[in-house]
């Protein structure tokens, strides 16, 4: 594991508790800050002025039913969707209008839903594509080693075509590919989609490890509230394109708001 990431991880683990408590002190410089974001498809508004912050080394979950706008929010942050209005700042610089690939170079990597991979390429080739932004032979080798360390199963399958992997392995491959770019902020879109509970638990365990050991901040969209809140520091409940409530995992766990937004009563009342 690389020295630099390890050092950062050390501090992050001890400071995580404080982070939440002293949010106002540290809040001046969050890693990602989304302010009053409006996004639409055609004439239809999907996001109506969303505000959101992710702290350095933090884990934030986006909660909400299908169609609430979680994916759209992630797509807007990573540059796949173009916002109508609002600002997105990554490490204190505006990133609105930047191409996804250039954001990857800056350390913001989006793992989209449905695990798109290069089906005809081998597992290792898939990972090598992820290392496009990494320069230098040794840096790439280190990154590959790191990816295999988190996902040993991929090392066994490294010569196989990606299409032959199981669903869980494919999800691991997509996350590992993102890891190849040495991200500082990972956007994960429904990593649990269509996977068996045991596999989901494995994947989330690895995500937590990546967060702790590499100091990678995580912003994830996850409809499964239980799992999401088990690893997140902070949750945003999103309903028809607006943030309905924000709170720590503990606060949200018993919240009436969360239950309502999943049952969809909120959607009918708007």
């Amino acid at each position: 594991m690389s020295e630099k990431a390890g050092g950062e991880a050390g501090t992050s683990v001890c400071s995580r508790g404080e982070d939440r408590a002293t949010a106002s002190a540290d809040g001046a410089h969050p890693m990602l800050r989304v302010r009053d974001l409006w996004v639409s498809y055609g004439k239809l508004r999907v996001l109506h002025g969303v505000n959101l912050e992710v702290k350095r080394h933090g884990v934030v979950a986006l909660l909400g039913a299908n169609g609430a706008g979680k994916s759209t929010l992630l797509r807007a942050i990573s540059g796949l969707a173009r916002p109508d209005a609002g600002s997105i700042e990554f490490e204190d610089e505006s990133i609105v209008g930047q191409r996804p690939s250039s954001l990857v170079h800056r350390g913001l990597v989006h793992v989209p839903e449905r695990r798109p991979l290069f089906a005809d390429l081998t597992v290792e080739e898939n990972l090598m594509v992820g290392a496009y932004s990494t320069r230098g032979r040794s840096a790439i080798a280190t990154a590959l080693e790191r990816a295999f360390e988190y996902f040993p199963i991929l090392k066994e399958r490294s010569r196989q075509r990606a299409a032959t992997l199981s669903g869980g392995e494919q999800q691991m491959l997509v996350i590992a590919r993102a890891l190849m770019a040495s991200p500082r902020l990972l956007l994960l879109d429904e990593p649990s989609l269509g996977l068996a509970p045991l596999v989901v638990r494995d994947i989330y365990r690895i995500i937590t490890r990546i967060n702790r050991e590499q100091g990678v901040a995580v912003l994830m969209a996850e409809p499964n509230v239980g799992i999401a809140l088990s690893i997140a520091d902070l949750g945003y409940v999103i309903e028809t394109g607006t943030v309905m409530s924000v709170g720590s995992a503990a606060e949200l766990r018993g919240s009436e708001q969360v239950r309502r937004s999943y049952l969809g009563q909120g959607a009918a009342s708007t």
């Binding site: 690939s101 798109p116 290069f118 005809d120 080739e125």
Partner: peptide, 25 residues
């Protein structure tokens, strides 16, 4: 070559390649 690999990846899935940091344009 690595360039060829990236070209093949872009051909296979443009969005995925872009999100992997490949300047697909």
């Amino acid at each position: 070559t690595r360039l060829g690999l990236v070209l093949r990846a872009t051909a296979a899935n443009r969005t995925a390649a872009e999100l992997a940091g490949v300047p697909t344009d």
